[in-house]
Nucleic acid binder design. Structure first.
Lengths: 334, 334
DNA sequence: TTGAAAGCGCTAACAG
DNA sequence: CTGTTAGCGCTTTCAA
C-alpha cells in the first residue's frame, strides 16, 4: 500500500512524468481533439499511477462558464428528493454538474442561494422556494433562475410547476365518474397550491352542476383528522366522497373517519394529493394525484440551460399530473 | 433597477472603488484584524453598491485547507435527511462548510465521492455507504474519511454509528418489562444492522431465560406482512409481542396482523426501529427505537475535524439509541 | 500535435 | 494599517 503523498499530484506532475506539456494533459482529460491515441493512453496511465485527479476548483476558476447548475431544496422534503434524483440525471444529460444546497431549520433559503452564487453556478434552480417575488427577482437579476413547484411571477425568473388546477379536477372528476354527487374538498388553507386545488375542485363540481363544499383543512395529519371530525359531527347531509389537499392531511382524515366507525371506501371515498410514501403504504393505499417529477426536473434543467443560451426569461410551464387510483375510492353505496 | 453587469465585480473592483488595496478588502471580508472600523464600513458599502460577492472557487483554490466537509447521502433516504440537517449545523459550528453529493439510482456512490474529492474537501463523511471496506480504505488513504451509520472496519476510516445491539435490547426489554414472555423477532436478513439487532434481541431474551424465536423478514412493508402471515398461520403457540427489524417492515406486519382480525396492542404488541415518519403517523403510532441523529452528526463532524488536526484514525464510536413508546405496545392480555 | 505564456479571483507572507 | 509579490491548478490563446 502506497503512503499518502504530502501534496496531491497536479497536472504538472503528470505532464512531467509522461514527458509532455501540461496543456496536453489538459486536452487528454477533457477528451478534446489534439492528442494522439498513444499519448492519451500514456497520459492516462501515468495519471492513474500517481493517483492524479483533476482539481475541480481550479477548473471552475479558469473557465468562463462553470457548467454548474445549483439547486436549493428542503432537506427531508420527500418530493424535493424525487426532483433531485431526476435533476441529477437531467443535468448530467446536458453536460452540466449539479451542486446541492440544502435548506434546514438552521440554514435559510437565502443562505443556501448565496452559497450557490458564490460558487458561480451558471444558473440556479430553486425547489419550492418560499421567498418573496421580490427576493427572487433580485437573484434573477444576476443569475438565470428557475423556480420549480411554486406559482410565482417575478421578473427574470422561469417557473415550472404542476398544473394543480388540472390535478384537482382529475381527482374530483374521478369521484364524479364513480357516481358520487356529494363531494367535499378539505382544503390547504393558504399553503402553496391550495388556491389552485380549490379552483380545480370548483370547476369540476360546477361543470357537473353540483354544490361546492369546501372545508378548511391544512397540510398535516392533524389538520385532516380535525376536518374529519368536524365533517362527521356536522348536521348536514353527509358527503359520499372527499378530495383532500394532500396525502398527509388525507391520511389523518382517513384515520379519523375509520376511527369513527365508517368504512372507506364503502361509505366514504377519499382522494389525496402528492403520491407520497404515506399514500403508497399498505395501510393508507390512498388514491391520489401524482406530480410528474421526471418531467418537472427535466423541464427545469432545460429551461435553465436554454436561458444560458440566451433564451429570454419569464417562461411559465405547467406540467400535467396524473391520477393514481388505489383502494380508497369506489362507487358510492346505493 | 440596475442592469446586470457583463462581468461580476471582483475584489479589485471593490478595492479600486474604495481606494484601498485588494489585500485590505480580503481582510475585511474575512473579518480578520488589520483594518479600521471606518475602512471596514466603507469597503462593505462599496461592495454592496456594486454587488460584489466573494468568489468561493478562487478562495478555495488559494487556501491550503479548503475548510470544506463533503458528505455523500442517499437522495430520498429519510434518515440521511435527518443526519444532513444536523451535519449542516455541526459543520457551521466548527467553521466548516458542508458540500453535499447525492446518491441516486443513476449516480453511484463512487461518483458521488469522486466529486467531493475533486473539490478537494478536507474530509469526507459518508452516510450509510454500501461500498466495500477495501474501497473505503482507498478513499481514506487520500482523505480523512468518516463513515456514519454502517458497521465497517477499514484502515484509516473512522466510524460513528448507533449501537444497534443496545437498541434491540431496549426494544426487547421494553416488551419483557411489560410482562411479555413469548416475544419474537422479525429480522432484517442480511441488511446492515440486522445482525446486531438479532444479537441484541437474543441477549435480552437469554438474559430473561426465555426462548429465542427469530423469523426471517426484510426491510419492506411487504416483508413484514409476509412474516405476519407466516407467523399467524403457524401452528405453534402464538407470541404476545414482536420486535420488528425496522418501521417499514413493522408497518406491514401491523397491517397484516390487524387485517387478520387481531388487535394491536391488546393481543399482540409490536415494536419497530428507526422512528421514521411512518412510525409517527396517526395510523401506525408505532413504538420504536430512535437513533440519535444530532449526536451522530455532531460526532461525525468532530471526528472528521479532529483527524484534520492530526488525530489518528480508526475510531469506532457507538451512539446510544432511545426507545420511543407509542401505542403499539402494552401489557399482554391475561 | 505540441509547448509557452497569460490569466481566472483569491489568499498569504512580507515589506512599507 | 497598507501595498507588493507570489502563487493555487487549471484553461486558453497563440506560436512552433
Amino acid at each position: 500500500m502506497e503512503t499518502p503523498p504530502t501534496r496531491r499530484p497536479t497536472m504538472d506532475d503528470v505532464a512531467a512524468r509522461a514527458g509532455v506539456s501540461r496543456a496536453l494533459v489538459s486536452i487528454v482529460f477533457r477528451d478534446l481533439p489534439g492528442a494522439s491515441g498513444q499519448t492519451r493512453e500514456r497520459v492516462r496511465a501515468v495519471a492513474a499511477e500517481i493517483g492524479y485527479r483533476p482539481d475541480h476548483r481550479a477548473r471552475l476558476l479558469s473557465r468562463k462558464r462553470t457548467h454548474l447548475l445549483g439547486a436549493t431544496f428542503g432537506v427531508g422534503h420527500e418530493f424535493h428528493s424525487d426532483l433531485l434524483s431526476e435533476l441529477y440525471a437531467a443535468a448530467a444529460g446536458h453536460g452540466y454538474e449539479l451542486v446541492l444546497s440544502g435548506i434546514t431549520p438552521g440554514r435559510t433559503e437565502s443562505q443556501a442561494v448565496q452559497e450557490l452564487l458564490s460558487l458561480r453556478c451558471d444558473a440556479v434552480i430553486l425547489l419550492g422556494p418560499t421567498m418573496t417575488a421580490h427576493e427572487l427577482a433580485d437573484i434573477a437579476a444576476f443569475t438565470p433562475t428557475t423556480v420549480v413547484a411554486r406559482a410565482v411571477r417575478a421578473t427574470g425568473v422561469d417557473v415550472v410547476r404542476t398544473d394543480d388546477v388540472a390535478g384537482a379536477r382529475l381527482a374530483t372528476e374521478h369521484l364524479l365518474d364513480l357516481g358520487h354527487r356529494r363531494v367535499v374538498h378539505i382544503d390547504g388553507g393558504r399553503a402553496p397550491g391550495a388556491a389552485e386545488r380549490r379552483r380545480g375542485y370548483r370547476l369540476a363540481m360546477r361543470g357537473a352542476d353540483l354544490d361546492v363544499s369546501i372545508i378548511p383543512g391544512g397540510l398535516t395529519e392533524d389538520a385532516g383528522a380535525d376536518a374529519a371530525r368536524r365533517l362527521l359531527s356536522d348536521g348536514s347531509e353527509a358527503p359520499t366522497a372527499a378530495f383532500v389537499f394532500n396525502d398527509a392531511s388525507a391520511a389523518g382524515f382517513l384515520h379519523a373517519v375509520r376511527r369513527a366507525g365508517h368504512s372507506v371506501p364503502r361509505e366514504l371515498s377519499v382522494v389525496g394529493y402528492d403520491d407520497s410514501r404515506l399514500a403508497r403504504s399498505v395501510w393508507a393505499d390512498l388514491t391520489t394525484v401524482a406530480q410528474n417529477a421526471p418531467l418537472l426536473s427535466e423541464s427545469a434543467a432545460e429551461l435553465a440551460i436554454a436561458r444560458l443560451g440566451g433564451e429570454p426569461s419569464g417562461a411559465q410551464m405547467l406540467i400535467a399530473p396524473r391520477l393514481v387510483v388505489r383502494s380508497t375510492t369506489s362507487q358510492p353505496r346505493l
